[in-house]
Design a protein around this nucleic acid. Sequence first.
DNA 1: GAGTTTACGTCAGCCTTGTTGACTTTCCAA
DNA 2: TTGGAAAGTCAACAAGGCTGACGTAAACTC
Lengths: 166, 166
Amino acid sequence: MAEGGAAGGEGLLYLTDDQLRKGIEAMFFAYRAFTSDPDRILAVHDYGRAHHRALHFIHRSPGTTVTNLLAILGVTKQSLNRVLRTLVEDGLVEARIGHADRRERHLHLTAGGLALERQLSDAQRARMRAAYRAAGPEAVAGFRLVLEAMMDADTRRHYLRLRDGT
Amino acid sequence: MAEGGAAGGEGLLYLTDDQLRKGIEAMFFAYRAFTSDPDRILAVHDYGRAHHRALHFIHRSPGTTVTNLLAILGVTKQSLNRVLRTLVEDGLVEARIGHADRRERHLHLTAGGLALERQLSDAQRARMRAAYRAAGPEAVAGFRLVLEAMMDADTRRHYLRLRDGT
DNA sequence: GAGTTTACGTCAGCCTTGTTGACTTTCCAA
DNA sequence: TTGGAAAGTCAACAAGGCTGACGTAAACTC
């Protein structure tokens, strides 16, 4: 509790437990919608959300290494490897041995990988665009501010590095 | 594509593909943080996210039926049933047979269920409160607006019914 | 040059939580 | 009163997290 309920009295009504609860529920329902369009496309190709995440971040940072991707995704290498292996086998991702350090695998999307990534992100952007347009630019700024404030410090570092040029 | 890239020219720069992509990534990273605190608590008790969701919505709508909960959570009844069964076995949830319709099960939290729900929502609210406070009231209003615009129409109905008194 | 560390891959096995299919009990309407 | 629909349960399978152990090659360090 500590500070819910009656609220300080000034302009802090947006911090009441009730307001926070609405935010929590909004987050839950919106995230489900957010993932639903890609999920439908992925199901057709017999892939899952994990494949989408890999495709997305390889697309964002072509040539990234496996270790790098692990830090961004926050999963174990065994988990990522399973997904990566199927993507390489299916010819959507290419894992090139590093020049300077031959232990590294630099990940790139193939033409096929780019095509699927495009299909997925088009769907996701379409929903986001509709929501942005409906809410307006000031709302969008606030949306981003709150989400960024919600991240862990470590995660925010990854996010900001991606957000502002690689 | 359709309208990304150069943008119409007016004040539509917030709808560029680049801006949308940042929103998408913010959503991904923030949601992970959003679920991390409850996840830690749940792990201690040997429960998962699905248990949290059930506890949350039973708390919100005491006496709700299984079918009702199904519509809100958007999973199959078999999936929900498994979670519900463990919660009932562990004495966190009580499933009372319906008066009017004996096929129905009306769900209630026990004292133990209320305690765990409180612990989980306290943790989740703490993070949300910190983010709200950091971003400020105008940002919070925008945050909610965008999330609501992102939901499917059906989901939004459930959300609004919960948002404005039961 | 030997030993340690790093990057990556893999096998095995576990858990949660989603799925479909088949089934019982209960209610209601023809 | 009977047949269909609705509410809920049991069984089995798959995706994708996880841990732990182990292997290999390359790089680094002393």
